[in-house]
Amino acid sequence: MSMKATVRQVDSVTVVDVSGRITMGEACKQLREVIRGELAKGHKNLLLNLADVTYIDSSGIGELVSAYTAVSNQGGQLKLLNLTKKVHDLLQITKLYTVFDVHNDEAGAIGSFKTA
């Protein structure tokens, strides 16, 4: 299953619903283009909803880090929503869980941007 990323706007937050496999190659490239595209539009509050991500590899993790850095460098915030157990465990193992602001409910995640 390839990766799909759908963008929607909720208040001042751009939510990117990601599904499928975030792995080396096309999927990572596609995610990068979506994030860079939103930044180019001036959307700097990004919430990646990973609920339907079935698989992520080391390159996919690297792509999340790359997105986080790109958004931060432009004065924005990138947060993660609804991690599956596999993604959660991988972020724990790689010590990235404390780097990302991770949420389990969308309303709370959206609200956290407002108060940030």
């Binding site: 590899d57 080391s58 390159s59 993790i61 690297g62 792509e63 880090v65 790359s66 986080y68 850095t69 991988l90 193992i93 790689t94 010590k95 990235l96 780097v99």
Partner: peptide, 18 residues
């Protein structure tokens, strides 16, 4: 070491570690 503080935000270098 991908867990080293200075490498934590590296884009690559986690494959063999995993």
């Amino acid at each position: 070491d991908p867990l080293a503080r200075e490498n934590l935000l590296n884009i690559s270098g986690r494959g063999i570690f995993l």
